[in-house]
Design a protein around this nucleic acid. Sequence first.
DNA 1: GCCGTTTTCGGCCCGACTGTTTTCAGTCG
Length: 592
Amino acid sequence: MNNPEIAELLRKMAASYQILGRNTFSIIAYEKAADSIEHLTSEAKDFWDEGRLGDIPGLGQSIAGYLDELFRTGRVRHFEEVMDKVPAAVFPLLNIPGLGPKKAYKLVTILKLKQPDRVIRDVSQACTDGRIRDIDGFGVKSEAAILTGIGEYRRGQIKENRMVLPVADALAEELLTHLRRTPDVKHADALGSLRRQVSTIGDIDIAVSTTKPQAVVNHFLKFPHRKVIEKGPTGASLLLTNGRQVDLRVQKPDTYGSMLQYFTGSKHHNIALRNYALGRGYSLSEYGIKQVKTGNIHEFKDEESFYRALGLPFIPPEIREDRGEIDAARNNRLPKLLELPEIKGDLHTHSLYNLEPSHDLGSSSVAEYLKISENLGYEYIGFSDHNPSISTHTEKQIIAIMKKRKVYYEQQYSSYYRNKQKRVQMFIMCEADILTDGKVALPAEAFRYIDAAVVSIHGSFRQPKDLMTSRVVRALTSHPKVRIFGHPTARLLGRRESIELDWKVIFGLCRQRDIALEINAYPDRLDLPDLIVHEAVKAGVRLIIDTDSHQAQQMYLMKFGVSVARRGWATGRDIANTLDYNTFAKWLVKGE
DNA sequence: GCCGTTTTCGGCCCGACTGTTTTCAGTCG
């Protein structure tokens, strides 16, 4: 049983306890345990294997004992006994926004709904028939609300309606630029998951500090839009022409810091922070910090002073996820997170040189890439075109192509720099497929004509974990010039799930051979995911951030790779391409 | 049921919103 399934089971227990009227704090305990397991970076089963179930926060003797039974026998008798007291049809209804355990239970018992697999349809029908309005505690509006909720639930099942970070970021930048055009705006910032730079974003929320709220709201409403959803003296919501919703919140400068902190989240960070504050006699809210004894509320202009008032250094938004940042802050052990200017090169780019590759060519010339590398202040760039297709070439042909390609790059390079002093250094590389059996799609002899290889998976994504792991191990150990494991989970945001890998094995191997795991900054990849970055950093594995550019302008997307690294607690020392050219070349170029 | 820079006992995040009420319960983020 995997983590999401266990979390769901624990949530069902919490709901059952709620219906059965048990102790509120048992209910909270089960919910916390579910949250905790959902946030875990490795499987709870792996903890159990190692006899460390108790190390999972929120699991005490009781719940850990039940999970032990679950892993040993596949069931928990206590859970079954409790949940048997609740009609099975209650549980599917908990997925409907607006319905919680109490209401769901009431509907199921009063309407005598027995069949879990059709209970949502039955409730929908009951709303349409007007059979819910007469139930105690419900009314006409409840019927409409439930129907809306069911609609949302159904749509949510069909399509995950989130933007990838770079898209949301670009949209937010337009809005922020628009807002900052009026002098009434003192500060304007993104809020929520966008400010924390999460890889996918739902709605865009923006905060403004001003002494003239109405003027700012009016100015905001001039942004091109399809419809005004809401407007008032302290905020407004617009539906944009692209179908996205933007919410604006306006605050006076004196309380801007508390508001920014509160709406940046994450929810889990805020809960943990409030817990921490409560131990010191403070109660937190979006309005400020209240001294519990006196009831006095202190307001904050900025977040720095907000955290300082709690005795903490500023915690960067990217790591506000309740993954240990409050403890680290308290002990003054927050990492000095990587920053964009530390990046000195990009090692995964595709030029337009046609080597008859297995996958897509780039569309920019070597000169264009060099030009942008200069603009970015880089010391080096690597060209990592896909290997020549193995289905349409013999080994001999591939070797010949790679040899010719090396000459081409060297000529392009020297002609670009004919009369120039300062140069961006170049690495001639290759992105080689990891084939189904773990072979790398580049003959050994072809490695002579490259400095190093990125290897990555472009097919057979659904192999079982052990097979996939040995496949990757074979590829990473196939040649000394294999130096980077590209977009390691092969996920595509909103389109394809990650492959399954035993990360412990991969981390161990990467450390042993000093191979870097790539953080691929391409918009719908953002791969490694931040959670695995965090694990890799803890394991002391070297990382490298690349854009996987297929046209030179995409090199500017590096900042999103940096965001992922920051969310994974990475510092400059964890990232290979913060090294200066000489040190970096020593690391990258191995073998003859 | 969990947990400890107030505590191994006695606390447990906070406030808004909604719809149903006549002072509140349930749900959400």
